[in-house]
Amino acid sequence: MVFAHGFGCDQNMWRFVAPAFAADHRIVLFDHVGAGGSDLTAYDFERYGMLDAYAEDLLELLRELDLRDVVFVGHSVSAMIGVLAVNAEPDRFGALIMVGPSPRYVDDDGYVGGFTADDIDELLGSLDSNYLGWSSAMAPVIMGNADRPELGEELTNSFCRTDPDIARQFAEATFRSDNREDLGRVRVPTLVLQCARDAIAPQAVGEYVHAAIPGSAFVLLDATGHCPNLSAPAATTAAIRSFL
């Protein structure tokens, strides 16, 4: 069972959910390159401008660990990264769990993603002003000690800290992506987990994903916000378990 975090933080997002499956699954947690405890020097600005690079990373990880019959649990943008990976190598996956997915965040002709292009610019501005707290003096501590993550964790807001340029590019790759076309090609049993009140992936978007993926299941969680894995871990765990 492989858990992937979304835009913003790192694998700590799964700390209330993943342990519940440890008894009967092999659990694999990882940080996307550029996030959390990953080696930031491996980040390539040429490469990570598209979500495909993250899907390739994921497949490389599965191959390296020789994982098969994988239950992939992707939160937010990682749900779409999962779709790309599943479509590229369907035989490797047993199930796809999408938590708060959105194939496109920006409204389009007849499609309601919930945001305008201006909103996304505003997010980038918000990132900029918050990353002023990221001081270049601290960067080496975070970047140079992938083997000693406790150094990074002592820093304020460390779970969500990364290089501002990387965060900006990940935000653009995430919020300017359009993967609606990829949904229809999913051929793996899929569960869409949707929060009732999600400010990022509204319910209508979750239903769109459900309708577009043939044979997918849909569970509406009575939860507020975009992170049921943190705000409603018991309900999230139960929904995944009953699907499996």
């Binding site: 505003e122 997010l123 807001n157 992170c227």
Partner: peptide, 20 residues
């Protein structure tokens, strides 16, 4: 919050608060 701020809230602020 503004729309951009809302995304920031959902992706950074709220998770951090829950975790830390």
């Amino acid at each position: 919050l503004t729309a951009g701020g809302r995304i920031y809230h959902e992706t950074h602020y709220a998770p951090l608060l829950a975790m830390q």
